[in-house]
């Protein structure tokens, strides 16, 4: 099954091409579009992007694996990304991680989210949840079900 960009995305790609000196710069933008469209980045999507921007598929694959926010597999569970870097650690991220254990979510440990002043912090999809405590985590998870 081959991957085709949606009409909307194809339009965005055409617009973006005019904004960069080389179509190669559209690598990350195209990967983001593909991931939004399908929920993950398939090998077919990589082939399609390769044709669109002129970077070899293998090289794009290398790019995908370099960045932590791209997935090569569909994500079936809620992905709870808990920051475990220093400021969050000092303010109780261990307690949050422990509290999440055994819950029906995917727990990811991520590095500093740039939200150290409101530690501990987690991110689900694109949304930040700050100044966490166990009760707050429960409320958040309930609201997302």
């Amino acid at each position: 099954m081959s991957f085709v960009f949606s009409k909307e995305n194809l339009l965005r790609i055409e617009t973006l091409k005019k904004r960069y000196p080389s179509p190669k710069a559209l690598c990350l933008p195209c990967l983001w579009m593909a991931q939004h469209q399908e929920g993950y980045i398939s090998i077919d999507a990589i082939d399609t992007i390769s044709e669109e921007i002129g970077i070899a598929p293998m090289e794009i694959y290398g790019v995908v694996t370099f960045y932590t926010m791209f997935h090569l597999e569909p994500q079936d569970k809620l992905n709870v990304q808990v920051c475990k870097t220093l400021s969050c650690k000092l303010c109780g991220s261990d307690e949050i991680l422990k509290h999440l254990e055994g819950k029906d979510v995917k727990i990811s440990h991520v590095e500093c989210l740039g939200s150290c002043g409101t530690a501990p912090v987690m991110q689900i999809d694109d949304v930040y949840y700050e100044e966490l405590n166990p009760e707050k985590v429960d409320e958040i998870l309930k609201s997302l079900r």
Partner: peptide
């Protein structure tokens, strides 16, 4: 022109 370019997680 101003174009926002989104990274993807790499310090």
């Amino acid at each position: 022109d101003i174009t926002v370019h989104r990274g993807a997680g790499a310090y």
